[in-house]
Amino acid sequence: METLIIILAGILVTVSTYLMLSKNLIRIILGMSLLTHASHLLLMAMGGFKGNVPIIGDQAGEFIDALPQALILTSIVISFGVTSFILVLAYRNYETFKIDNLDKLWGIKDE
């Protein structure tokens, strides 16, 4: 199971990298969000699936290590904050420059 999750994370990282190297801001943001998922999956897989029960008294099956769960939760919340900020930044950018090709955006001179 761990191997499978790791490979899945790897594929997500690959896709995310490809998206982040594109010249469109939304695709970059999508890439960032995929990367976050990948990092969470990795945290989960690294902790292993033989962790302790998340809710005491619950029975059976495979569980994620409890500590990584907490870490992932924190990370999810943080990336939510970051994502919303950068989304709004992207929005402001489109609105200001009216360009969605970043290669062109970098070429704009100030003043």
Partner: peptide, 23 residues
């Protein structure tokens, strides 16, 4: 873009290789 694809795949592979070793 082939160039970007190569970069992406190598990053992905690196991440996977380390993860598998750690596991």
């Amino acid at each position: 873009s082939i160039k970007n694809l190569i970069i992406s795949v190598s990053v992905g592979v690196t991440v996977v290789l380390v993860a598998l070793s750690v596991k």
